[in-house]
């Protein structure tokens, strides 16, 4: 194991986050606060409680998931796409590092950043609404699992993308809609039956539902299924990354 390399990459990536503090941390915090103002206060004041939880508190887990998903993907995809774009990836490819080490460092750094961000948003939310976390250990587990899974997913997008446009494509066209339709702002039980069934094909539903359970003990779908789906998605991402590295796909060709 080339620990020096893993550490070097990880540190470099974290340094980038601190250098772009405004973009990496301040802007998600501001946009989340806006969600609270718009959904939580303005609209939420007209919505009754959901499952016995005030609407403002109800959307907190969904909002954190929203940030976690988008930030994990954008951090990890940009981190590997940028050296590809400017050409400095030559150094990584010529270095005595294994694929596992590359993934560990990049995905580790991207996941760290989004977890920190998730916790900052949680703290911000606590300023707006009364929060309670019934299963803190599970809350952290879902946080870490989701961050790692979607950082891996972002890493795959970053390797696949041939242009900045493609880099934005998947997050914009797939992830954002799925997140908004994934029960962040409502309980899927509020939907008509047919839409409820459609929604069950949306993987984000399971993430949000499981995460919300760790807060309030209530969920749209059983927690075990949430956990299972997240792990399945994680394994799919791991398999794709393994395939990318075995074939040198868009890296060594």
């Amino acid at each position: 194991m080339n620990f020096h390399a893993v550490w070097a990459i990880y540190r470099m990536e974290m340094a980038r986050a601190f250098r772009t503090m405004l973009q990496s941390i301040v802007s998600p915090v501001i946009s989340t606060s806006l969600y609270f103002v718009v959904f939580g206060s303005a609209i939420g004041s007209r919505i009754t409680e959901i499952d016995g939880i005030s609407y403002g508190a109800f959307i907190v887990p969904g909002l954190i998931m929203l940030t976690l998903l988008t930030q994990s993907i954008s951090n990890a995809s940009f981190a590997i796409y940028f050296p590809k774009f400017v050409g400095s990836i030559y150094e990584l490819l010529s270095a005595p590092v294994s694929y596992l080490e590359i993934v560990l460092a990049y995905v580790g750094a991207a996941a760290t950043k989004s977890i920190v961000l998730g916790l900052i948003i949680l703290a911000t939310a606590a300023l707006f609404v009364p929060l309670r976390i019934e299963h803190p250990v599970w809350m952290l587990a879902f946080l870490v699992l989701t961050a790692v899974t979607f950082s891996l997913f972002g890493f795959i997008i970053g390797i696949w993308a041939k242009s900045f446009e493609q880099l934005q494509l998947v997050p914009l066209l797939i992830v954002t809609p799925l997140t908004f339709l994934g029960g962040s702002f409502y309980s899927i039980n509020m939907l008509p039956d047919i839409w409820r069934t459609v929604t069950l094909f949306n993987p984000v539903v399971y993430l949000v539902s499981g995460f919300r359970w760790s807060f309030y003990g209530t969920s749209d779908v059983p927690v075990a299924i949430s956990l299972g789906m997240t792990v399945v998605f994680l394994l799919i991402c791991i398999a794709i990354v393994a395939w990318i590295f075995r074939t040198g796909y868009r890296l060594r060709n």
Binding site: H4, A5, A8, M12, R19, F82, E91, P96, V97
Partner: peptide
């Protein structure tokens, strides 16, 4: 990497090579 300092980028290379 255009935004790194000379010192950081050279030390990074050393680490990368173990």
């Amino acid at each position: 990497d255009a935004f790194e300092s000379v010192w950081a980028t050279v030390n990074y290379s050393r680490g990368l090579f173990g």
